[in-house]
Amino acid sequence: MLLQQFINFLQLGSIYALAAISFSMVYGIAGLVNFAHGSVFTIAMYLLFYASTLLFKITSATWGVFVLSLMIASLGTSIVAILMERIAYKPLRNAPPISVVVSSVGVGMLLEYLALNLAGSKAKRMPNLIPDITIDIAGTTIPLFKIMIIVIAFIAMIILSLLVRKTQLGVAMRAVSQDKTAAAFMGIDSNRVITYSFIFGAVLATIAAGLYGSAYSIFAYNVGDTINWWSFIAAVLGGIGSIEGAVLGGFILGGINVIAPMVLPVSSYKDIVAFGVLIFVLLIKPTGLLGKNAAEKV
């Protein structure tokens, strides 16, 4: 029982963490609260759904379908993210930050309702993307997909942190996130770096969508809304622009989501607890758990 809850916590936490990193990529590097990110997640869900249903008609190799449909969906969401950046955000690079936020709200609304109109309002059921096997650990049966979700999420996070730390692109990304002007002096093309951050964000969101779809197979057009809020909250809770912070925030939210319903009489109070924790943390440390306290410039 306890082990099962612990696995549930790890599963939910790693999905949130991955979604929060994908949100934080754009947030940290382009300095933009991208309200359209939830819609990218929604589009990833639908692309995964259609791709895997089609592929299952041809073959029954589950892992092959999983990897292939993830690739197709990543390609699709990357194209959407690039177009979004080019059309809606790039003309506003020097505008006040708030107009970019409003523009992203518009894009988010457009994409979400486009998905609704094209795919219908009926809830869809994602096919099983991970083989339906259960395994025994110390007397409790645990479905394989839960463990695979945790493993895949961790692999994705490790690859991402290697990319950001070791490669030239990663160094450029960190430079742009710290200071755009100084990065430009060092010969870094910040526009290109920002485009890459949008692509990374889209691919990570697609992986998160694949894991989410394996965990809770039923979804509708508004699946991205909640994910958007939760990943925004996780990113801020951990500290804006910090990958470790996003992971920490994701796991804290996952923990609250698993523990609160066990302790509280009404399960829907868990939102209140989550926001209560968030507000409490921000009142004590206004830049998030792992965020750096920026010195005030006068």
Binding site: A88, V100, G106, G108, M109, L110
Partner: peptide, 16 residues
């Protein structure tokens, strides 16, 4: 529901 698609697009255009 198409009105939200139009509305969202218009909002984006106005902001640009």
């Amino acid at each position: 529901t198409w009105r939200w698609v139009v509305g969202g697009g218009l909002l984006c255009v106005i902001m640009i």
